[in-house]
Design a protein around this nucleic acid. Structure first.
Lengths: 127, 127
DNA sequence: GTCGATGCAAAAACTTTGCATATTC
DNA sequence: GAATATGCAAAGTTTTTGCATCGAC
């Protein structure tokens, strides 16, 4: 049966689920490697694609050549990219009404917001 | 002098400037090729990176492995990705106040919004 | 002629695929 | 033992770099 959960998949899924924000494939590998030492990057990508297809996770495009992955089902939220440490944080509470900027005849399914700036840790670190 | 404008750079810059929305590197090459037949993709990438550094254009992350580039200085606007034709449209008019979702101690520089949906042309095309 | 820009091809980086081995039931 | 998943390595992509040549002053 395909619902079989190997230790690799478990480690990868948990890495994504437990993260505070979206992670890159190599970050996922690094974290999951702590539980499954010889975990290959191919397995990480294969698992990511499986989880994307099943809808358990989704991609978050952050910048050129920087996609990260996060679990679905965390509720409506958006992202904050710190330009100092390059970490992405989840942010809850969305101002809402995007509809006013949608052109006539267009149909909106969803929206995502990415805020750029400097996180509290980096602001404190650097006087 | 470094302000020298070759026909390649001119064609690439114009392709980006004249586009109705952000373009991918290969799309830029395709358009610019109409004026400069043997234009290589390396020149496109080199020019993109130059224009990014000088601040004339900026990257728009759309999805995994899909970054597009647009001119800066079009005023504040956001993007609409049509999941049917995969085109990205500019949208003007921004609802504004993102500040309420920014965590304490974080500092916002900028924000970008990507709306997903179906464009008017695709809605009309498919009953 | 000097300087920088280009095209091509090679290299690097990132992602996917093939295949023999390993794991689960 | 059958079926699926894994690791490794090879193949695909995408982006960058090296280098000989070309073009502008």
């Amino acid at each position: 049966m395909s619902a079989h959960q190997t230790k690799q998949r478990k480690a990868i899924t948990e890495a994504i689920q437990n993260a505070q924000g979206p992670l890159r494939p190599t970050e996922i590998q690094l974290i999951a490697c702590q539980n499954v030492p010889r975990l290959g990057i191919a397995t990480v990508y294969r698992t990511i694609n499986m989880l994307l297809e099943s809808g358990e996770i989704q991609a978050v495009p952050i910048a050129a050549n920087d996609v990260r992955y996060e679990p679905t089902g965390r509720g409506h939220h958006h992202h904050f990219l710190c330009h100092s440490c390059n970490k992405v944080y989840d942010m809850h509470g969305c101002s809402g009404h995007m509809s006013k900027m949608i052109p006539d005849g267009f149909e909106m399914d969803d929206h995502e917001i990415l805020i750029h700036g400097k996180c509290a840790a980096c602001k404190k670190a650097k006087k």
